[in-house]
């Protein structure tokens, strides 16, 4: 009887450590693991070092290609100008992302609730998505009263689509037997949406959000490039344009570094959020994608 119980016992946790015979093996394993984790950092440092050395050996002028040290120095010196611009770009990105996250979820639910609505609207959502934002941005900038608003609309337009389509796919991917079970127990439409379809679509929705986060930043930057206006409210894209006109190439690179870091930060934050939410049930979260 005990043997039976053993068989029914839950599977061991993924991260359970297997006993290692020799201590030396264990240390080697730890070193190997740390090295593996640090691999991208080591590679990045090597790349920067080669870049710096090549620039110095060949006496490349800074207005063609500045070395990493000069870029870091510029970033530090110009932080007072660049950081407020970063905040402006970041604010547009975050607001556009939030609007895409909420609006995308609602429209995705609308699509999933009626095949007629989905059939009627979905092609136009696709049209909006495949038309390059650079091409629409000038129009939006003309129509919107305020440049900031125009940038917001552009960023939102780009970020919106992956959320809608992922949500719609997720809502329709519910397990067929579970759906029937809900039917068997007389679940209302609202109960089925709230207790079954929404939770089941969570992994899809969160994957959509991860894509939308990066796209919102791209949308905000691209639209500002197109707008090309400065003034008190200029974001990082305008700083890049401005530095380009003045041939302050190190500053251009410094702004670029800030944009990239912001993008990485957004992606990391959304990945973390998704892991936290899906921790208990979804395989991809458990496996650490």
């Amino acid at each position: 009887m005990d043997a039976m119980e053993q068989l029914a016992a839950p599977e061991p946790e993924d991260d359970a450590e297997t006993p290692v015979a020799a201590n030396g093996d264990r240390i080697r394993a730890v070193v190997h693991n740390v090295a593996f984790q640090m691999a991208p950092v080591i590679f990045g440092c090597l790349l920067l070092a080669v870049w710096e050395i090549l620039v110095r050996i060949n006496h490349v002028p800074p207005y063609i290609l500045p070395g990493p040290l000069l870029i870091a120095e510029t970033l530090y010196k110009d932080f007072g100008t660049l950081f407020p611009s970063l905040l402006i770009t970041f604010r547009i990105t975050v607001v556009a992302f939030a609007m895409a996250a909420i609006g995308g979820l609602l429209l995705g639910m609308l699509f999933a609730s009626s095949r007629w609505i989905e059939r009627s609207l979905f092609p136009y959502a696709v049209v909006l998505q495949v038309t390059p934002i650079v091409a629409i941005a000038p129009l939006i900038i003309i129509w919107a009263k305020d440049t900031q608003l125009a940038l917001l609309i552009c960023a939102w337009l780009v970020a919106f689509f992956p959320v809608v389509s992922n949500t719609a796919v997720g809502l329709n991917s519910t397990d067929r037997n579970l759906t029937q079970l809900f039917h068997l127990y007389g679940a209302s439409k609202f109960q089925t949406m709230w207790m079954l379809k929404l939770p089941a679509s969570m992994p899809y929705y969160l994957a959509g959000l991860r894509i939308a986060g990066g796209l919102a930043l791209i949308g905000a930057v691209v639209a500002e490039f197109v707008a090309g206006t400065g003034g008190t409210q200029s974001g990082l894209a305008y700083r890049i344009l401005e530095a380009g006109y003045r041939l302050q190439i190190p500053r251009m690179f410094a702004a670029l570094v800030l944009i990239s870091l912001t993008g990485v930060l957004i992606f990391a934050a959304l990945s973390l959020l998704s892991r936290l939410i899906l921790r208990k049930w979804h395989e991809s979260a458990a496996g650490g994608h």
């Binding site: 079970l181 127990y185 007389g186 679940a187 109960q191 207790m195 939770p199 089941a200 969570m202 049930w281």
Partner: peptide, 17 residues
């Protein structure tokens, strides 16, 4: 339902009612 605990899975039919 993978997102619900064992208790909540068993509670489901009663919750729907």
């Amino acid at each position: 339902m993978p997102w619900a605990s064992v208790f909540d899975n068993v509670y489901l039919p009663l919750r729907l009612k």
